[in-house]
Amino acid sequence: MLDFKLSKPTAEPEPAETFHIPEPADGIYDLIILGGGPSGMTAAIYAGRAAIKTLVLAGSMPGGQMSNTDTVENFPGFPDSVKGAELAMLFQRQAERFGARFALETVTAVDFSKRPFTIRTDMREYKARTVIVATGAVPRLMGVPGEKTFFGRGVSTCATCDAFFYRGKKVVVVGGGDSALDEGIVLTRFADQVTIIHRRDELRATKIYQERAKANPKINFMLDSVVDEVLGDKTVTGVRVRNVKTGETTVVDTDGVFVYIGMIPKTEMFKGQLELDEWGYISSDENQNTCVPGVFVSGDVQDPYYRQVVVAAGTGAIAAMEAEKFLGEYPELDGPEQLLYCPDPEK
């Protein structure tokens, strides 16, 4: 377990192979990327190579969801798989090599109604000619009684972080997708028993995960089942589980509840500024344009379907190339003003 990761910006790389871009003199960045996951960092690599003055507001966790994924097996170029945390570090190192600046600040508000665009973080305010929104998604919670009460005291959405606390204990994992099964397998390294609770009669996860989970003697399944309540005293003691076919309710004793039932896009701060679909995802055209010219979107925040590192990276690259094109067409602080609105801004 003793490894030493350097996930922070380390140092200026060798001058021969780096492109150092200073903080803009007028305080206005050419491009600000909101989000430091695979999509934001890929956009930063492309923008840096195009010599665009780029700032990445990476939020609290550079690498995004990638960082709390144990192992990534399907990112091309890593035939023996790669730790999510390590992949995140490699993305960041590559972006920094091309001069992107990173700030571990969380965006709290934006103003896309006039140029340059304004971005406010928990610490300060920034101005930018173009913006790429790559804020990603956060774990969805079940919304049942007890879940919030016991969050951090038995309820978790990060097996990588918290598995250790369940050595020799019993846990349940809620969900039936890749994350649920993969993290369920991670939990068996510590926990004695892992029960996977899934609402349908078959799992949604990729076959390879299903086979591994089914072959693991510590894992058992409760299908057609949902959690109605998280029970506990000071910490979690159990979950009330309902069979959706029979309606029968049982209490399952458990010390921990790991929730992997999908994601919610982080778009609260864009309401009234960008067009969102009914699920909260940002709408865009095939070139990653949002309804505000100069504001682009990439990654999971606009992707309800695939949610893969490689796809997020791909749309990040497109967004950066489109931003470069936009900056070429509107080198001054202008832009197509007449289009600076979104359909149904009240929505």
């Binding site: 377990m1 922070k8 609290s60 972080c161």
Partner: peptide, 8 residues
């Protein structure tokens, strides 16, 4: 924990 990306 050393494996927690949110912790730093």
């Amino acid at each position: 924990t050393p494996t927690c990306p949110y912790c730093p």
